[in-house]
Write a protein that binds this DNA or RNA. Structure first.
Lengths: 118, 118
DNA sequence: ACAATTGGTAAGTCATGACTTACGGTAAGC
DNA sequence: GCTTACCGTAAGTCATGACTTACCAATTGT
């Protein structure tokens, strides 16, 4: 249990690329076809296909064949998983931060007593 | 307002690397020195220094010089920012998902009526 | 059957970045 | 003052991955 970053690993790697985050943002309004997505991006359609592959492998997108087109859509659950990962990080960081604040407060009090004494 | 990914961009890029996420995880319990962090990682100390630079530039970590050592700590606020980004993504994706579910339900109803009729 | 639309795959190029060793610089201890 | 501990930076190597063009497969409509 050193870290449970099996699927989280793929997710972060997928969202690291700006073009892929643009694709994800473009899918916030619902499912879209590959050509449709590529039309709004500064890269070629094959490049978009490759990005969609990465995002799908990471479990972020779902595909559905509709005639000759393939409709890609965001999977809300995957975003929820990422959120949970950050929630844990946030809780721990906050706790550590609070503990450190208390520690510094104690140290300050001690040094003040010391000054008063000397 | 096409996208507000100025700082979010650096954050995602920073967290894309597994070693850097390991560093962040190592800091969940509080501040630690460079050598201390490097001792628990499979890379050299200079490599850790470089990672710490990236994480600090992304606004994820803070540094504090203590004698000859430099203590790095997680900044909770940065994690909170990331969380907000995902919250927006999650809300939109959920709404689109729900809308799509309704659309499919309508389409199914129509096709069933059609079948009944024919 | 055939042409057109749509999109995935292959092969190759090129930039980015993660890592190493070597070095320099600063603060504590003798 | 000199050594020791700690750490950032420089320079160079090497793997990864993002992108391109070219090609191929599948579906739709005439």
């Amino acid at each position: 249990m050193t870290n449970g970053s099996s699927s989280i690993d793929l997710t972060f790697a997928a969202l690291a690329d700006p073009t892929r985050r643009a694709i994800v943002s473009g899918l916030r309004g619902g499912a879209r076809s590959v050509g449709d997505l590529a039309a709004g991006l500064p890269v070629s359609r094959p490049a978009v296909s490759q990005h969609l592959r990465v995002l799908t492998d990471a479990g972020l997108l779902s595909v559905e064949q509709q005639g000759t087109r393939r409709m890609y859509a965001l999977i809300p659950q995957s975003v929820a998983d990422l959120r949970r990962y950050l929630d844990n990080l946030w809780d721990d960081a906050l706790a550590a931060y609070a503990a450190e604040a208390r520690r510094q407060a104690r140290a300050k009090t001690r040094s003040q007593k010391k000054e008063t004494k000397s």
